[in-house]
Design a protein around this nucleic acid. Structure first.
Lengths: 113, 113
DNA sequence: ATCATAGTTCGACAATTCTCGCACGATCAA
DNA sequence: TTGATCGTGCGAGAATTGTCGAACTATGAT
């Protein structure tokens, strides 16, 4: 049985509306924030308190929108940001969003990430 | 009878998730694109083919998320981007999104804006 | 082989969001 | 005043999205 594989859009296929939508969800934005701070991360660390199926849902959405790259590692699931692809396609976007997010009213949340 | 008035969030109240959500809709992103190119614009120019109630819906959403400023002028409705507020709060965001949008597969659409 | 763990898929339900017709009030022109 | 135009609010229905339990597969350890 082949290990789990995941489909990822090519860099050129990444579309701004989908990326913005993916980042517009607080839960997912928090996941992206962690990924930016920690680099490649075990999926479960992105939402330890979430039901697994919910976590898969959001991870898949981030993957299909081109925001993250997902890779199976044993039983686990490693996630990393597609920094370079996003930077090539939408220069500055990710940094701007994360910077703006930091300066806002975040950090008080534990319920999602 | 007082002329129509509109509520706008203060600059500090503008939240990134809401802004990203507002911009994640192709219709609205197109409206914002026009506003960036033309400056203050008659609302009807933002969606000449849309039913009025649909146009009001999207305009209100952009306004409530802090992306645009709306002002009544006679019977009409003038819309402009809140460039400065957005720049102050999320430096570079708007420019990055619009630049990335331009470089993508847009322009072929007439059905929304 | 057995068991526990991790992730996926499916299905159902709740919550949002989108679209748009319609009635209404406001504005301007004649 | 009459009539045309514009925006708004309401309401309903469609479509999308979010949440999560349950069953299933794969992996790793005992």
């Amino acid at each position: 049985m082949p290990p789990r594989t995941y489909h990822h859009p090519d860099a050129e296929e990444i579309a701004i509306p989908r990326v913005l939508f993916a980042l517009s969800e607080p839960l997912r934005l928090n996941m992206v924030r962690k990924l930016a701070a920690q680099g490649e991360t075990d999926s479960i660390d992105l939402g330890p308190d979430l039901p697994r199926s919910t976590l898969t849902h959001h991870t898949s959405l981030l993957r299909e929108s081109g925001v993250v790259f997902v890779r199976a590692e044993g039983r686990k699931c490693m996630i990393k940001l597609r920094d370079e692809d996003l930077e090539a396609r939408f220069p500055g976007l990710l940094g701007t969003v994360l910077t703006g997010y930091e300066s806002a009213d975040v950090d008080g949340e534990e319920a999602g990430a």
